[in-house]
Amino acid sequence: MIQIGFCDDDLSILSELRVLLDRYRVERNVEITSAAFQSPLELLTEIERGTRFDILLLDVMMPGENGIDTAREIRRYDQSMKIIFLTSSAEFAVESYTVGAYFYQLKPIWQESFFRLLDSVIAECAKSGSMSLILRCKSGITRVELDKLEYCEVLGRALWLHLTDGTVLESGGGMDHLCEQLTEHDNFLRIHRSYLVNLDHIKSIVPKTITMDSLAELPVPRGKYAELKDLYLEYAFRRKQVFLT
C-alpha cells in the first residue's frame, strides 16, 4: 500500500491532484491512500504525530513557511520520504535537491506527465522497500539499506543497529519483530537472543567470538560454535564464495 500526501494552499490544485490520482489508481490497478493539506503547519503536525507518507507532493510557494523550508523540517523526522515539489517555475530546481527532493513537477499538471512521474517514484519505492528497513528511531523515521546493516544488538530495552559506516541507530522495536521483518533475507542470522548479524559482514568465526568487518567482537553462545560455523559456511557456499584451506 502506497501512502501519498498532497500539500498546496490552492484548493483547485488539491482537487485536481485527487482527480488525477483516482484515474491513476483505476488505470494502474494499484492500492494508494492519500491525504491532502492546505498548509505546511497541518502537514508537519500530522507527521510529528507519526503519520508516514511514502510520497509527498509539496507546493514550493505557500503563505508563511515555503515548501523548501517545510521539506527541511520533514527531513528531521523522515529521511526516506520521496518529496516531489510542485512549482510554476524551474528556478527552484537546484535548491530542491538540497533537501533530498526526488523530483519537481511543473504546473499546470498534465495527466501524462503526472502518470509518468508516479510510475517512476512508485517503482523506486518498491525497489528501495524490498532492500531496506523502515525504523522509528529517536532521530525520526529512518530507512536503513539492508546491505549497510552490519549487526544489531539489544541493550536494556532498546534495539541498537550498527551500520557499516559507523552510524549507530537506537530503535524502540524488539529483536523478535526485527527478525520477523528480515525472514526473507537469508543473509541475516540471529546468533544469540540479543544479537543479529549480517553474514555478509562477518570477518571471522572462532569458538568464542564472531568478529565483524568493523572489528566488533560478538559472543558465541556456549555450545553454538559448530552450528553457527556450519550455517555461515552453507550461506557462503550458496553465494559461491571461495575458501582457501
Rank of each mutant, 00 (worst) to 15 (best):
I32F: 04
L169R: 08
T164N: 10
T211L: 01
R157D: 05
L218P: 09
P207W: 00
T211Q: 03
E234Y: 12
E234P: 10
A216C: 01
I191L: 09
A93Q: 04
C179R: 12
D213V: 14
S34N: 08
E31C: 10
V121E: 03
A236Q: 15
I68G: 13
L169F: 13
Y235K: 07
L57E: 07
Y232A: 02
N66K: 06
F53A: 11
T245R: 13
R72S: 02
L58V: 11
V121W: 01
A35S: 09
R72D: 01
T245F: 13
A123E: 11
E124F: 10
I68S: 12
L196E: 08
I32A: 04
L189S: 08
R18F: 01
D200A: 06
R18E: 05
F188M: 04
H162W: 03
P221T: 04
R136S: 14
R76M: 00
G166A: 03
S89M: 08
M62S: 05
E180I: 12
G173T: 07
F243D: 10
A236C: 15
L44C: 06
S130Q: 15
R25A: 07
T45C: 02
G129P: 06
K203V: 07
D213Y: 07
S12T: 09
E65Y: 15
L218K: 08
I2S: 01
I205L: 09
L231G: 09
T209I: 10
C137Q: 10
I122A: 05
H177Q: 12
T51F: 12
E184Q: 14
I202R: 07
H192S: 09
G5M: 00
S89L: 06
I141Q: 11
F115C: 05
E124L: 12
K148F: 11
R222F: 15
T51R: 15
F114A: 04
L118V: 04
T87D: 03
F85P: 01
G172H: 02
S12E: 01
A226Y: 14
I68K: 12
F6W: 01
K107I: 11
H177G: 06
R136A: 12
L14E: 02
S88I: 08
A123I: 01
P108L: 10
D54E: 14
F53E: 11
Y151P: 01
S128P: 08
V121N: 04
L215G: 05
C7F: 01
I134M: 14
D9I: 00
C152D: 07
M62K: 03
E170W: 00
E112F: 06
L161I: 06
F237G: 10
Y151E: 00
R28M: 09
S15G: 05
I84S: 00
K107A: 10
F85H: 00
L133N: 10
S113D: 12
F53G: 11
V60H: 08
R72H: 03
M212Q: 03
I210F: 04
D69L: 12
T209N: 06
K138L: 14
M212G: 04
L169Q: 08
R49P: 03
A71G: 05
L189R: 09
F53V: 09
L231V: 05
A93N: 06
T87I: 00
A236M: 15
S39D: 09
P40Q: 05
L163E: 11
I84W: 02
L244F: 14
L228T: 02
P108D: 08
R18H: 06
Q241Y: 12
R49T: 07
D59A: 11
L228S: 05
K240G: 10
F85C: 01
L21N: 00
E95L: 05
L133R: 10
Q38K: 05
L57R: 09
E170H: 06
